[in-house]
Amino acid sequence: MKLGCPKEIKPQEFRVGMTPAAALEAITNGHSVVIETGAGLGAGFSDEDYTAAGAEILATAADVFAQADMIVKVKEPQAGERKMLREGQLLFTYLHLAPDPEQTHDLIASGATCIAYETVTDDRGGLPLLAPMSEVAGRLAPQVGSWTLQKANGGRGVLMGGVPGVAPAKVVVIGGGVVGTHAAKIAAGMGADVTVLDRSLNRLKYLDDVFGGTFKNQYATAGATIDLVRQADMVIGAVLIPGAAAPKLISRAQLSEMKPGAVIVDVAIDQGGCFETSKATTHQDPIYDVDGIMHYCVANMPGAVARTSTIALGNATMPFMLALANKGWKKACADDKHLLNGLNVHAGKLTYAAVGEALGLDYISGEDALNI
């Protein structure tokens, strides 16, 4: 199989879908690899690093799309990239289709087979290809939130850890999964007063057992959530329903109950955001003000630390990429129900229920798609 990796074109996206190490693994397994020139520069990988691994460098993304049987990316294909997909081609990347009807319709129309990193599962009920970027985004959230809290950026002017005689910032993390846990760890490490909200008692018990007094946790009733949000200097949205649109947990009306200059960091923005007032922003223009509350809603947060993120993502995606290349997507998915869960689009059909329900579109099961 010929694997292709184009340069990411989403604004301020510096990651790359395939590391030189992943390219070498594919080539060692008998496949060929084509890379768009400059694709790895944002993550610190030169064209020479790829050619040393045995990959071929091509001049344009169009060349990569035209030659490759499988396209390996990071972010969802942009409009121009979607036009280059063809029937029977395999796309392996993050898609986040539930809040994106335009992309969904384009992928269905392309006839390509599209496997989404974010819906591949594992035996423990986790999302192994989303987890590394969730870890990065969770750890970044308090860092970018503390910057947004600075008065010059519109925030309350509160230092995360306070100083002797001055209380630290109050941080509320909504969601105790991978993002929320890493966000809470970093925020607490910065000296903040942190509370994690979640609706899973088992998860709350786990957080209490593992982290003890490092940060607090509380059951996420609607009343408890708004009470804590009223007191917060920073609220981090870390709620995920795999493949589906994120639930809206704080309404615009409730912003008026927050402290002026408080900060919202919406890590769920890739799935539409978990605050009513959230809208996707970029690293170039990351924050905006709604009713005196500062919103940080960058849709590709891990792109800010592109080298760390690229290597972490490559470590996770490589075994699945090789399975798809070695076996072909149908056998790979038939052999691995967790990889089959990543199938979102095939041969003009939507194949993921949560996306169909979110967008009001017809869909078939992944099992049925194997027979097309």
Rank of each mutant, 00 (worst) to 15 (best):
P6K: 06
E13C: 01
V16L: 11
A22P: 07
L24N: 07
G30Y: 07
V33Y: 09
V34N: 07
A43D: 09
Y50W: 03
Y50L: 06
A55V: 02
L58A: 14
V64P: 09
A79T: 12
A79L: 14
Q89F: 13
L97C: 12
H105W: 10
A112M: 05
E118H: 06
L127I: 05
L127V: 00
P128H: 07
P132E: 01
P132G: 03
M133I: 08
W147S: 08
T148D: 08
R156I: 14
L159D: 03
L159H: 02
G162K: 00
I174L: 10
A188Q: 02
V194Q: 00
V194M: 00
L197K: 07
D198I: 12
L207A: 03
D227L: 01
L228D: 05
I236S: 05
G237T: 10
V239A: 14
A244H: 05
A246G: 06
A253C: 08
G261Q: 09
I264W: 07
E276P: 00
T281A: 10
N300W: 04
P302F: 01
G303W: 11
I311C: 08
L313H: 02
M318K: 13
M318T: 15
A323W: 00
K327G: 01
A334T: 08
V345C: 12
A354K: 14
E357Q: 14
D362P: 10
